[in-house]
Simulated assay, not measured.
Amino acid sequence: MPDVIEKAREAVHERAELPGMSLMEHLTELRSRLIHSVVALLICFAIAYIFHEKLFSIVTFPIDSLNYKLHYTHPTDPLNLYLKTSLYGGAIIAAPYILYQLWLFISPGMYQNEKKYVIPFMLATVTLFFGGAWFGYHWVLPSALKILIGDFGHRFLPIITIEDYNSFFLSIIFGLGITFELPIVIFFLAIFGIVDGKFLIRHARYAILIIFVIAAIICPLPDALSMTLFASPMLVLYALSIGVAFVVAPKKKELTEGK
């Protein structure tokens, strides 16, 4: 861990030597990017709300297929669910533009040759997130509902509120979507010289332990087999991240010379 901190400090110092903007210019740029992102999110939220019934059907399909009805305890719960569904749907629609704004904010601190990664960065980020969401929606969520309600709870009458289901749905879908972004995180750490492929292999046992701890936390099922299956895609992503780090590392010197 100390060597990672030291490498991070060196990377920050190295980037600080790049010709860049002052603190006020950075704050102004951040403000501009945030405004653009919020406006895009609001527009996409409005578009998503037009189709809120369709979005609601997509969200509730896993539990509808088990013939369970959702309940609510407050008169505003259905409206809040439609609003939240539309907001999350709008966020997904606006995600590529928001990512582009993020890239525009961090790009001044990058070497010229590193900026060519903008398109692969956006494509990989969106693809990995949707890959994780798809895995959660089509495999983890239906299996979890079937086991938790159908197997463990078959002797009881389930009273599932729309708030409870919505939180459960989001924890799985967004949790896995964010988890699948691991190669992107490793990519930037490798670009900045903080980690490399050899470092990731050398500390693989710690990474595996952390992955299983995360799987135990976010896995909705209590058995070890389900936790292992939940951790499997993260282990594959870690292996992919090692490959990404090995690909990026040889280009580090070239990128530095092209600043």
Rank of each mutant, 00 (worst) to 15 (best):
A190T: 06
E10A: 12
P75G: 09
V195K: 03
L79P: 00
I208T: 11
L18H: 15
S57N: 06
Y72W: 14
A133V: 07
G20I: 08
V126N: 08
L41V: 10
F169R: 00
F168I: 05
A239G: 13
K259I: 00
S167H: 13
I106S: 12
L225I: 15
K253E: 08
A190E: 05
Y137C: 05
D223V: 02
L221W: 03
S57L: 13
N166L: 15
E17D: 09
I106R: 11
I211F: 10
E181V: 01
F246K: 02
F121M: 13
L99H: 07
L102Y: 14
E114V: 02
I159Q: 08
F121L: 08
A11I: 08
I201S: 11
V126G: 03
T60C: 12
P75Q: 14
G89A: 08
I147G: 00
F174G: 01
T125V: 03
Y72K: 09
R33E: 11
R205M: 10
S171D: 10
I162K: 03
K252T: 02
N113Y: 14
P183C: 08
H154W: 13
L141W: 05
I218Y: 03
L237E: 01
L229G: 07
Y82M: 13
I106A: 12
A190C: 08
F246S: 01
L18P: 08
W103S: 11
E53Q: 09
H138C: 03
L221Q: 14
